[in-house]
Amino acid sequence: MRGVGILGAVSSPPSLEVSGLAFAYPDGHQALFGVDLRIERGERVALLGPNGAGKTTLVLHLNGVHRAGAGEVRVGGLEVTREHVQEIRRRVGIVFQDPDDQLFMPTVGDDVAFGPANFGVTEPELSQRVSDALDAVGMADLADRSPMHLSGGQRRRVALATVLACDPEILVLDEPSTHLDPVARRELAEVLLGLDRTMLMVTHDLPYALQLCPRSVVIDGGVVVADAPTWDILADPDLLAAHRLELPFGFAL
């Protein structure tokens, strides 16, 4: 569905449009029961929910690792199908939970180049992409290092750079603040706030959601149970309790 913008221009399609998405794992376990979610371009949305709610399963539908059992997923207007899978993967940049899974090349620079090179970017643009992406996360001088010799916070930011280098339509982060010390956590937040990209952030860290995402979606038992401004969701103790979400000690809205 296309709306008409204020100035009469045709507005761009939403970055993400999930409708009626249902999915069962091959072993028969049904993880998603009809998920609807629409994220406009430039929005930052937190995806909240207890363990086993289906968050990771949903994320893996966004770039075609899992195929919808029913319903559909569109990224920037393009439906996730087998034919489009390569373009979809370029448009959806997933930063996985453990940076050690994401950083598999011997050096940081090679790792950041891996995505764009797969998507057909060649020199000299490739080097430009790599240095731009490392610049954006404040790691420009570490291109020649092995990921093994970086701190946890640095690894997380490099993992973010590997995805930014692909110039994604939507950035998806799976639990970005786990295993980060407070300073690294704040530094990552500053980088993310400075990016100006559509973002979907899976997290258990409710204050982090509040800091980074104006809007939150709560998912539990494979369905969306709440979709509202983050402040409103965190200020609703009954909703939080019903879905095993909890603000840290001493934190109240």
């Binding site: 690792v65 390569q86 598999f104 797969n118």
Partner: peptide
């Protein structure tokens, strides 16, 4: 998990 992360960044079987 590494394989998944590689696929997600467009890996199709050959290293660039």
């Amino acid at each position: 998990r590494v394989h998944l992360a590689m696929l997600s960044r467009g890996y199709t079987g050959t290293m660039p």
